[in-house]
Simulated scan of single mutants.
Amino acid sequence: MDAVSDTVERAAKLTGQLLAFARRQALKPEVFEVGGRLRGVADMLDTVTGSRIRVVTELPDMPCHVLADVSQFETALINMAVNARDAMDGEGTLTLRLSCLTGMPPIRGHGGSAQPFAAVSLTDTGSGIAPDRIGRIFEPFFTTKEVGKGTGLGLSQVFGFAKQSGGDVDVESTPGHGTTFTLYLPEVEAEGQQPRDDGEDNHSSAGGGRRVLVVEDNVEVGRFATQILQDLGYETDWAANAEEALARLGGDGAGFDVVFSDVVMPGMGGLRLAKELRRRLPHLPVVLASGYSDVLAQEGSSGFALLHKPYAADQFGRTLNRIIQHHRRPMAVE
């Protein structure tokens, strides 16, 4: 079972990296301050790069905000750091630098932009990249590492994330003198933000008898989801499509606490169902599940909670519980 689980996790990561390169991943963009996130990643890079690599961080005094997926941003930084570590053979200096309000230069034949960008660069003191290879480093599965040392998808994820976020990634290298990767993301105005809820672990995964309507057209997946929920203490009902779900919910929600729906289904589809329920039953939370959806890649999740397949049972339960708790918070009265 451990071997099966590990294989599934590796397959999920591989698929996610390919979707990132193809700019087809479902992102959860939010406004965040780049310097703070960069400092946080730098603090944990020792575990990635090893003790013989010195990590230096250079940040401006002014804050710098972008609209992007925080998790994918941090993943991109780690992917570039791992690439730098390997180029330095585990010993050297890695410099993380942030520049604000900078224009984006022409990159790989594409025109630049005078609009303000946040430029995050990682500079290593490694072996550099040969001129005949530098044009291929963002290609999926292209790698100069030994067999078993890498998939050749780390930099592809960086490329896809940058492009899908409205930016780009550039590389400058001199053989024998190191390499600099620079990630460009459009700057935005800061906005009032609620604290980011990373702590799903703060919510129990126990169902406590809450009622969940599972909407899933695949019989095996539907059985699997309902079985997990029942094991966690939820009461479940199952609709085979969005139209059946709407009929089951009626005009008052039929006593359900949350709807858990697949995205890709014949007919209405999960995202359209969620939007319709937001209109009809705004008190009823909806959680979407998808391994891949071109609709989500193009339109985003429209503010609905999204659970990526494959998911673990405890992650499933915590997500549902968190969404239910969030919708039950009392409104402030003035």
Rank of each mutant, 00 (worst) to 15 (best):
T180N: 10
H203Q: 13
T236I: 11
H177C: 13
I53A: 06
A206P: 00
I129T: 05
A68H: 00
D237M: 10
G111L: 15
L98F: 02
A3P: 00
G128R: 07
E146C: 09
Q17E: 05
L38R: 01
L320H: 11
D132G: 09
R37K: 09
V4S: 01
F117V: 11
G199M: 03
E235S: 09
G167Q: 06
S302G: 00
P330H: 14
R136D: 15
A118V: 02
V333C: 00
E91A: 15
D252H: 06
E9M: 13
T180E: 14
D61S: 14
Q193K: 10
G111D: 13
S165L: 04
P131N: 01
P282T: 03
M88P: 04
Q230E: 14
G109K: 03
R272N: 14
L19Y: 15
G92N: 14
A130F: 02
R329W: 13
T93P: 12
R108H: 05
Q315V: 14
G135R: 02
G154S: 08
G192K: 10
G36R: 03
L306V: 01
L59Y: 01
M44T: 15
M268G: 09
D6A: 11
V55R: 09
R278I: 04
G111Q: 14
A12D: 04
E299T: 08
V295P: 02
H203L: 12
P116G: 03
Y234D: 03
P195K: 03
R39L: 15
R211E: 08
T226W: 15
S204Q: 06
A206W: 14
G36K: 01
R108W: 01
K13R: 15
I323D: 09
G178M: 08
M44W: 10
P116H: 01
N83I: 05
F224L: 11
A87M: 14
R85A: 13
R272V: 09
T144E: 13
D198K: 05
L213Y: 04
F260P: 02
G222L: 04
V66N: 04
D2N: 09
Y234M: 05
T182A: 11
Q230S: 09
V258E: 05
S156E: 00
V8K: 11
D314Q: 07
D170R: 02
A76E: 03
